[in-house]
């Protein structure tokens, strides 16, 4: 049985590193990240509507980000920085649904507390980062870079928190799998 959390973790890596660019936007494209997200969600053990919504959302984002990437490769951007920021906003909304799904799956399980705490911090930092970056465009040129950087730091922090959650879930998932194997033996 494949581990869904591994896919969510790598999906986050692909989407996040692409979002922050570091001057190399084409190495880890977003659409692969969303594809990994969609597959990870597909593997999650739930039949709730949340699973269907978040998977469909991931597929829609994958298609949208593919066009954004394609235009970047061709040398021009759709709506410039606005398109990237809009994708970022949709990503935050998408992550809200992912967390709702994870909270539903981890309901009354040992991972519930950690998932909820990560959800609180992740959403708060991600939205704060987005708001700070949104306001940064109206600051003086001297301040703009610094304010934007602070926003990026918030988002980096929240991504690290999600990666940490995925790693914990990963270990928990492995333990359960081992126990099942032992019980079969």
């Amino acid at each position: 049985m494949k581990n869904p959390y591994e896919y969510l973790l790598s999906g986050m890596g692909f989407v996040f590193i692409d979002l922050n660019a570091f001057g190399l936007p084409d190495i880890l494209p977003d659409f692969i990240g969303y594809l990994l997200f969609a597959y990870g969600i597909h593997l999650l053990p739930s039949f709730h509507n949340l699973k269907r919504w978040s998977k469909n959302f991931a597929i829609i984002l994958m298609i949208m980000s593919f066009f954004v990437e394609l235009y970047q490769w061709l040398g021009y951007q759709i709506l410039g920085e606005i398109g990237v920021q809009f994708m970022q906003f949709l990503f935050i909304v998408f992550m809200y649904w992912v967390f709702q799904l994870l909270l539903h799956i981890h309901n009354n399980k040992p991972l519930e507390a950690k998932t909820f705490k990560t959800y609180q911090k992740f959403m708060a930092f991600m939205l704060c980062g987005f708001v700070i970056q949104a306001f940064s465009i109206n600051f003086d040129a001297s301040m703009r870079g610094n304010v934007h950087f602070i926003g990026s730091l918030f988002q980096l922090l929240s991504s690290l928190l999600f990666i940490n959650l995925c790693r914990t879930c990963n270990e928990y998932f492995k333990k359960i799998k081992e126990n099942k194997v032992h019980s079969l033996e």
Partner: peptide, 8 residues
């Protein structure tokens, strides 16, 4: 969500 979006 909506306030963040409108702020943007």
């Amino acid at each position: 969500f909506s306030l963040s979006f409108f702020a943007w």
